[in-house]
Simulated assay, not measured.
Amino acid sequence: MTTPPLVPTGPDADATFYHGTRADLAVGDLLAVGWGSNFQAAPLSWIYFSAALESAIWGCELAAGDGRERIYIVEPTGDWFDDPNLTDQKFPGNPTRSYRSRSPLRIVGEVESWTPHPPEVLQAMKANVARLKADGATIID
């Protein structure tokens, strides 16, 4: 039995999607809800991804853990929506092209190289995330 092609059902339907992390995964694996995120250990009810490589770079650079930074090319397996953590709160109009879904994301490839943020820019962002956590902010919905 062959798998029918996926029918895009969200914004940026014809885009290439990315997920930045430190998790060591393989093509064909599924990223699913119910696990902790790059930013918190509590299981999430959404899986996050972006149609902008820049957003995925931040995702892998800010991810907790000691594993190698990775950016996977992913394919949504169900409906997806604008990520309100960014779209509504920080960047109206969703210029980061950030999305979330309750359906798994299938890994279809990996970005082999990208330009990391300069160390001082990354450190400033990490300090900001740490400050938000210390203030009790909910970073991810």
Results as ranks from 00 to 15, higher is better:
1 M>I: 13
4 P>C: 09
6 L>D: 08
6 L>W: 03
8 P>I: 11
8 P>G: 13
10 G>Y: 02
15 A>K: 01
18 Y>I: 08
21 T>N: 05
23 A>D: 12
25 L>H: 06
26 A>S: 15
26 A>M: 09
26 A>T: 12
28 G>W: 04
29 D>K: 00
30 L>R: 02
31 L>Q: 03
34 G>I: 11
35 W>S: 13
43 P>F: 10
45 S>E: 14
48 Y>A: 04
49 F>L: 09
50 S>A: 15
51 A>Y: 04
52 A>P: 07
61 E>Y: 04
63 A>F: 05
68 R>G: 10
69 E>F: 01
70 R>G: 10
71 I>F: 07
72 Y>V: 10
72 Y>S: 07
72 Y>F: 14
73 I>W: 00
74 V>E: 04
76 P>Q: 03
76 P>N: 05
79 D>Y: 00
81 F>E: 11
82 D>Q: 08
83 D>F: 05
86 L>S: 08
88 D>Y: 00
90 K>V: 12
90 K>T: 04
91 F>V: 06
94 N>M: 09
94 N>D: 14
96 T>Q: 11
96 T>H: 03
100 R>C: 14
100 R>K: 12
101 S>E: 05
103 S>H: 12
105 L>M: 04
109 G>K: 01
110 E>K: 00
113 S>F: 06
113 S>P: 00
114 W>N: 03
118 P>F: 02
119 P>R: 01
122 L>W: 03
124 A>Y: 05
125 M>H: 11
129 V>R: 00
130 A>G: 09
131 R>S: 14
133 K>D: 10
137 A>L: 01
137 A>W: 01
139 I>R: 00
140 I>F: 08
141 D>K: 02
